[in-house]
């Protein structure tokens, strides 16, 4: 990230910063705190700003659009071969977290196991929740769905 960590008098250096914008929207700010042995300014805070245009969520799509490109890059691919908590964090959390459109994990926990299983497998009518079971064209195996149920109900 930094070209060299020892810079002699009159020498120059560079600090390379990268910002990922996946899943971001609107004005964003990233900072890099630089701590040095400069006695006058031992801390410099570098700021990177951008206005992220979310072209992916502009118009409502069919719920199962998330299983196809370009949506699957964020919504599906990260969960491949994952189980339980890791699978939830990869494929579910972007909608099922507090402040997002879908019920949070604590609300999901209150549902009966049967209801939850059906929602994950077949989807929820009149919502953006698609069926995740491979039997209805989704990406998840039965073992993965069982691991999600165990994770959600066990929290």
């Amino acid at each position: 990230m930094v070209s060299s960590d020892h810079i002699g008098p009159n020498e120059t250096g560079r600090i390379r910063a990268t910002v990922k914008t996946d899943g971001k929207k609107g004005r964003i700010l990233k900072t890099v705190q630089v701590e040095t042995n400069d006695p006058v300014r031992p801390l410099v805070v570098l700021k990177l700003r951008a206005n992220v245009i979310d072209a992916f969520h502009e118009k409502p799509l069919q719920p199962d659009a998330i299983f196809r490109s370009p949506c699957r890059k964020c919504h599906l691919d990260r969960g491949r071969d994952q189980m339980g908590a890791a699978l939830f964090r990869a494929d579910c959390i972007m909608c099922h977290m507090r402040g997002k459109s879908a019920p949070s994990i604590s609300s999901l926990k209150k549902l009966s196991r049967e209801r939850l299983k059906e929602a994950i497998e077949e989807g929820v009518p009149d919502s953006m929740m698609p069926g995740f079971s491979w039997r209805v064209g989704g990406p998840l195996t039965e073992a993965q769905i069982r691991s999600l149920l165990k994770y959600i109900k066990g929290r």
Partner: peptide, 13 residues
């Protein structure tokens, strides 16, 4: 959204 932004901050001693 989806772009990876990169910037070099240049400094001198």
């Amino acid at each position: 959204q989806g772009e990876v932004l990169e910037h070099d901050f240049l400094f001198r001693n």
